[in-house]
Nucleic acid binder design. Structure first.
Length: 121
DNA sequence: CATTTGACATCTT
DNA sequence: TAAGATGCCAAAT
């Protein structure tokens, strides 16, 4: 069966990766894009999530920017507070700057079976 | 049908 | 270390 490379297929791939993110962990747009097969194309991830309905089964709130913060932009007024609340419910901790420790909550496809995120120095 | 803006990331100054 | 500018694809107007 032919795999259509239309926007639907591209978005579908991104949703599949985001859906794989376990609770209590987060991923950056760039990471999701890389896992989806589109490295350096983090923007498409954001666009895909934007086209995603709020009632969707995709944990879009587990996707944050590379700064460890929330980037809903003006596309969703107040959405930053909503996403932050959802992440806090997952057990994440935000700084006074509204940023979280990516080094600590960044999810790995291996489920962290290799080593702890605390850099085994 | 063409132009503009947009849930970001990375490089350079 | 921080701030500004660039590149990418897709959806909206």
């Amino acid at each position: 069966m032919g795999i259509r490379r239309d926007s639907e297929g591209t978005h579908n791939r991104i949703f599949a990766v985001v859906r794989r993110i376990p609770s209590g962990h987060v991923l950056t747009y760039g990471d999701v894009a890389a896992l989806a097969g589109m490295p350096e194309h983090a923007r498409l991830v954001g666009y895909a999530l934007h086209a995603l309905p709020q009632h969707s089964a995709v944990p879009w709130h587990r996707v944050i920017n590379h700064k460890g913060g929330i980037s809903t932009g003006r596309a969703w007024p107040g959405g930053e507070l909503v996403q932050r609340s959802l992440l806090e419910a997952e057990g994440l901790h935000f700084d006074a700057n509204g940023r979280t420790s990516l080094k600590r909550y960044r999810w790995k496809p291996d489920d962290g079976a290799a080593d702890a995120p605390g850099t085994p120095d």
